[in-house]
Structures are given as C-alpha cells and as structure tokens.
C-alpha cells in the first residue's frame, strides 16, 4: 500500500463512514416509514463502502473507533448535522452527485494489475457507482418534491441548499492517490446540481463555496464543531471497553 493510496482510501472511507453514521441517526425519526427504509438503505451502502476502503488502510474497527477528530479525513460537508429533512436531502444531493461522478471516473480508469491497492480502489468504485447512482436519484427526487412542493417545503429546501453551499468547494480539492481531473469533476458537478435545482424551482445558491477559515479543511483533519460530538457518541462504547470483541 503506497502512501498516496492510503490517503485516498482514508479520504473516501471517512466520507462514507461519517455520512453513514449521520444517516443512521434518522432511524425511527424519518417522516414516513418508507423513507426510514430508504435512508437506512443508503446508510448501509455507505457503511459497506467505508468498510472496504478502511480495510485497505488497516484495521477497520481501530480506524473507525480509535482515531481522534484530527485524524479523520472526511469533508466537512458529510459531518454536518442532519437538521430537518431538507438539510439531509441537500447534503445527500451535493455529496451523492460528487460520489457518482468521482466513482464513475475511478471505475473507468485504466487497469493496472501490478498495483494491487489501485485495483482494489477501482473494483470498489465499479461496484459502488451503482449504489451511489441510486443515492443521487433518491436525493434528486426529494429535492424536486420539496423545492416544488408547498411554500414551506420550498423555503426549507432553499434554506438547506444555501446553508450547505459553503461546504461544497472542499470536495474538489485534489486528493493524493486519486488520478482525476478535479476541475472537470467540479464543472460536471455544478452542471448536474444546478440542473436539478432549476427543475426544483430553486435558485442556485450564491456566495463562496468554502468557509473563510477552512484552509485544507476536513481533508487535512480540520473539522467543524458538530463533528466532535458525533464522534464521541460513535466511539463511546468501543472506547469504554477496549479490546472487547463484538
């Protein structure tokens, strides 16, 4: 495992792990039973991706439960609290569109049979791209319904898209070990997201797409305040009983 692929697997794995945990928080609280199942499904897909990716780096449980906040490499977008249903959907739309475009590119990369880790990443992307295409479709369907629904749902969806906009720029900072044209990826992402928002009768959010203080942000281990609390909850049991098998 080369250092650069380590970096790549950790970045993608942490994205999937953290968002999966956030979606898990919806269990028992979703607006309707069917949506409960859909969110859980997406969370499970992401957790599966996280397990494969973190296993490329080391022991998945150690990596998930024994790292401090500063050692996590996920983007700040995925660690944002669920908020109302519109916030969860906006976060999912932004992230799943990114994941679909990125995994599509990774899956289509040239085979390099002499490089085992790179091949593992390619294999994962080929499998996961089907999952994330569904996630994106799910988020898109809800964006259309909320944006073009009642005046209240429109306002909430708009507020959610605006609030999370400042975290979307970070996803396109180049990640070491991922051989991707990041500018092109970002352009495709903007096209895809603005098409959905237009159809949903929502304006494209204005303002910067990175926070003023974010620097390297999540990919460098700099996280937002809610993330610490999320980790405390996620890691509590494992840390209370170190070495236990589950």
């Amino acid at each position: 495992m080369t250092a650069s692929l380590n970096t790549a697997a950790l970045a993608l794995g942490d994205d999937a792990l953290v968002l999966s945990h956030r979606l898990g928080e919806w269990a028992g609280h979703a607006p309707v039973l069917e949506e409960e199942v859909a969110l859980a499904n997406i969370a499970l897909d992401l957790l599966g991706q996280a397990r494969v990716l973190l296993s490329l780096v080391g022991d998945e449980d150690e990596l998930a439960f024994l790292r401090e906040e500063r050692a996590f490499r996920n983007t700040q977008l995925v660690e944002q609290p669920n908020g109302d249903f519109a916030h969860t959907i906006a976060r999912q739309l932004y992230f799943s569109t990114y994941q679909r475009l990125l995994y599509g590119r990774l899956a289509a990369a040239d085979a390099s049979p002499d490089d085992e880790a790179r091949e593992a990443l390619r294999g994962l992307a080929a499998k996961a791209v089907k999952e994330v295409a569904y996630h994106q479709d799910h988020a898109e369907q809800w964006t259309l319904r909320l944006g073009d629904g009642t005046p209240e749902s429109h306002d909430r969806m708009r507020a959610a898209c605006d609030a999370l906009w400042r975290f979307t720029g970070e996803m396109f900072q180049p990640v070491e070990g991922l051989d991707v044209d990041w500018r092109e990826l970002e352009a495709d992402w903007l096209t895809s997201v603005s098409t959905v928002l237009t159809r949903a009768a929502l304006p494209l959010p204005e303002g910067p797409r990175t926070t003023a203080w974010s620097a390297g942000a999540g990919r460098q281990g700099v996280h937002t305040e809610p993330f610490g609390r999320m980790l405390a909850e996620m890691q509590h049991l494992h840390r209370s009983h170190p070495g236990a098998s589950w």
Partner: peptide
C-alpha cells in the same frame, strides 16, 4: 406501501420488496 406518487412508490418498492 404508501407513497406520494408513482415515482416514489417505485423507489420505495425497490427498497422494501426487491432488495435491489
């Protein structure tokens, strides 16, 4: 199942009854 419209019903059916 319950769904707001046919499109969502299809997606919910996929999750609930086909496990993809």
């Amino acid at each position: 199942l319950h769904a707001p419209d046919a499109e969502m019903a299809l997606r919910n059916a996929r999750d609930l009854y086909t496990r993809r």
